[in-house]
Design a protein around this nucleic acid. Structure first.
Lengths: 364, 364
DNA sequence: ATCAATCTGTCAACCGGTTGCCACGGATTG
DNA sequence: CAATCCGTGGCAACCGGTTGACAGATTGAT
C-alpha cells in the first residue's frame, strides 16, 4: 500500500523566511500542549488587523475582493505573525487539496524517476503538491492505492497502470485522471510514440548489415510492451529484416541474463529489448559467454534510464521522453482541474534513437 | 520548493475493495456539485446504524470504547457504505496527520532511493504516510521546505541536510526531527559508520600491493565527505599507505571524469571516491585514456548505488546500508512520536566493502 | 436630492471528524 | 434496599479556514 507524495509547494501565503519575530502582538492564545507552539491562524491576524476573520480569508485568497487598504493591513499583519495557512483546514470545506496523485509501479525503478521529476516540476510551477504512490507492480494494490488517493487528491496520474481499462474508466468518472504509457479509450493519455524511435533503430541496424532481429518482450500485461513489438514488426517488414519475439521472465537485469540463451539460439544478430534493464542484463550475460558486443551481436535498449551509459560498451537505446511525459500529463491534469475537457485522443511525444556503443556493424 | 510525499497507508478503516454498492441506505444527502459523488461520512453511518456520530467516531478509532454489539453494527454499516475517513477532517482537530516528512537533496539521485524505500516501508508498517521533499541541494530551499512541511507532518527526517546545525536544532525544538548521514549534537542521528568499510577497502588495496592512495572528495559542505576523508587517512596510516586528497568539482559522473587528470598526476595507484558516481566517471575517463582498471589503477566507490554493477569491470564499493538508515530513522521518529525520548548519541550502522572487478592486484 | 448600483466588510453556517462532559441504566457493594 | 461505580452512548463545542447572504457605506446617474 506504499504511496509517495510529491509535496510540491504550498498554495498560499508565503511568509518571509526570517525567524518568527513575535514582535508586539500578543502571543497566540492557543493552548500549547507540551512545548507545541501552535501556528497563528486567521483569527490571530484578524485581531491584530482589527477586522473580521472572513475578511482575512478573502484578503489572502480572493484577490480584489477587499479594498487595497485593508488588503495591505492584513498582509502586513500576516507577515508579522509569520502566518501560513493550514492546508487541512482549507481542504475541509473546499474539497480542493492542491495536490495531484501519481501512481507508479515501483519507486526504485529508474524508469519512473524522470516521470516523477517531470510531474513534480510542472505541478510545482502551478502550486500543486504531487502525491506519489507505489503499487508494487500489482493491479490489486494499484486499485487500492488509487481509491485511497482519490479521496485525498484533486486529480490522478497513472503511470503504466496494470489495472484493466474498465476500472480505470471508473476512476476517471470520479475525478480527473490522466494515464501515461498506455492508451485507454475515453481517458486522456500521454504516450511516447515509439514508432519513430523504433524505425530509427531498425534502419540503423539494417544499415549495419543485420538481417535477423529479436525482440525481448516485457510483462505480458504491459500495454507498452505490445506496442513496441508491433512497432518492431512493422519496421522490420519495411526494412526487410526477419523479426522474432522472445519472452522474458521479468523486465529486470536478471530477466535479461536469463534470456541470453534464447537470444543466441534464435540466430538473431541484433536485439531490441522491452527496456534498458533487460538489455543490460542480456549484454552482461553475453559478454560473460564470450560474445562480442557489438561485433557479433548488437543490442538496443528502450527508455534510456539512469545508468544506461555506465556499461561498456555504453548502451544504444530508444529514448522515451519520460520527463516530458510526466510534465505533459501533469499539465493536462491541471488544465482539466481548471475546467477544461481532456483531449479525446492520446497525446503523443516523440522517441528517438540514442546511438552509443552497444550497436554497430556486424563483423561476421 | 519541490517536495514529495510517500503516502504509505491510510491509518484507518479499510473498506473492502468491492464496488460501492449503495444498497438500501438512502443516498448521501450531500450536494453533489457536478457528478462528484461525495464520499460517505460518519454521519451517514450513524444514520444507517441508528447511533450518534460520536459513537461512530469512537467505534472506528477508539477500540474498546463502545460495546462489542454496537461496534459490530457500526462496522457493518461502514463496510456497506464503503466508508473511508477523511484525513483532513481528522487532522484538523487533532493536529495529528499520520505523516512523517523526509527531505532529500535530489529525487533523482540514486543514493536516496534506498533511504526513501526504507523509510517508506517502516512508516507503512506503522500506518504512517511519508512526505518526501526535495531541496535541490540548496540550504535555503531546504529550510523553506522544512518549514513548510513542519506544519503538515508529525515529524521530520533530514537526509544529508545542507543547513547549518543551528537551524536544524531550531526545527528539532518544534517537532521531532531525525537526521541521516550527519551528526548534530542534541538531535537524534542515524549515520553509517564508515570506518569499518574503509578499513576493509584500504586493507584490501594494501594486500594487493598498492602504496599510494588518492581520495576524491565530495562537496566541501558535506559532513559525510569529511568523515570519509578522515577514515581514509586513519586507515592509510595504519596500513602504511600514502594518502592524498583530491577535490572534485561536483559529485557526479562528470565530476569524476574531470578529476581523472589529477588522479593520474597524483601518482596514486588506488583511488577511493566520495561516492559511486565519481568512481564511475573516473573509471570511464581513465579507460578512455587507455589506463587499465584494475591492472594499473584500482577504483573503489562509495554507497553501492543502483547501477554500480553495470560497469565493466563492475565497481568495487563501500556499501552504505542506506535502506537500513532510512528504516532506522523512521523507526526512531515514530518512537519519538509515541513519547519516547530520542537517543542522545548517534545511531551507527555498519558499512562493508563489496569487492567487484574495479579493484585488484597492481600489475606494475 | 433621490434612488439604484456597486463596493466592502460582517455574520453565521458549514466541511467531517474528535473529545470532554454528562446522563442513563445496570451491576456491585455495604 | 440505598449508595456508588462503571460501562456506554449522546450532546455540543471545537479544529481553522471558506463562502453565501446581507447590510452599511460610497458612488454615480437622473
Amino acid at each position: 500500500m506504499a504511496t509517495v507524495l510529491l509535496f510540491v509547494a504550498m498554495p498560499d501565503y508565503d511568509g518571509a523566511v526570517t525567524e518568527a519575530t513575535n514582535s508586539g502582538a500578543a502571543t497566540s492564545p492557543a493552548k500549547r500542549g507540551r512545548g507545541e507552539k501552535s501556528s497563528p491562524t486567521i483569527y490571530d491576524i484578524a485581531r491584530l488587523a482589527g477586522v473580521n476573520p472572513s475578511t482575512v480569508s478573502r484578503a489572502l485568497s480572493k484577490p480584489g475582493r477587499v479594498s487595497a487598504k485593508t488588503q495591505k493591513i492584513i498582509e502586513d499583519a500576516a507577515e508579522q505573525l509569520n502566518y501560513q495557512v493550514n492546508p487541512f483546514a482549507r481542504a475541509l470545506p473546499t474539497g480542493r487539496t492542491q495536490t495531484i496523485g501519481l501512481i507508479v509501479a515501483d519507486i526504485t525503478n529508474p524508469t519512473f524517476f524522470d516521470i516523477i521529476r517531470g510531474a513534480e516540476t510542472t505541478g510545482s510551477d502551478r502550486n500543486y503538491t504531487l502525491v506519489l504512490a507505489e503499487s508494487a507492480e500489482s493491479p490489486e494494490t494499484e486499485l487500492i492505492a488509487a481509491r485511497r488517493m482519490l479521496s485525498t487528491v484533486d486529480g490522478l496520474i497513472l503511470a503504466s497502470p496494470r489495472m484493466d481499462d474498465e476500472r480505470i474508466r471508473a476512476l476517471a468518472a470520479d475525478k480527473p485522471v490522466v494515464v501515461i504509457n498506455r492508451e485507454i479509450v475515453g481517458v486522456p493519455c500521454v504516450v511516447p510514440d515509439v514508432n519513430k524511435g523504433i524505425s530509427q533503430a531498425v534502419r540503423s541496424l539494417a544499415a549495419n548489415g543485420h538481417q535477423q532481429l529479436a525482440y525481448v518482450a516485457g510483462p505480458p500485461q504491459s500495454w507498452m510492451s505490445g506496442r513496441r513489438w508491433e512497432g518492431v514488426q512493422a519496421a522490420c517488414d519495411w526494412y526487410k529484416l526477419g523479426a522474432v519475439r522472445l519472452e522474458s521472465s521479468k523486465p529486470t537485469v536478471d530477466g535479461g541474463r536469463q534470456v541470453a540463451r534464447d537470444v543466441l539460439a534464435s540466430g538473431a544478430t541484433a536485439v531490441i529489448t522491452y527496456n534498458d534493464l533487460l538489455a543490460i542484463g542480456l549484454m552482461q550475460e553475453l559478454q560473460a559467454a564470450g560474445v562480442q558486443v557489438p561485433d557479433q551481436i548488437s543490442i538496443v535498449g528502450f527508455d534510456d534510464i539512469f545508468g544506461a551509459d555506465f556499461t561498456t560498451p555504453a548502451l544504444t537505446t530508444v529514448r522515451s521522453p519520460l520527463g516530458e511525459c510526466g510534465s505533459r500529463a501533469a499539465a493536462l491534469l491541471l488544465d482539466m482541474l481548471l475546467g477544461q475537457e481532456g483531449p479525446v485522443e492520446a497525446v503523443r511525444v516523440d522517441t528517438e534513437l540514442v546511438v552509443r556503443g552497444s550497436s554497430g556493424r556486424l563483423i561476421a
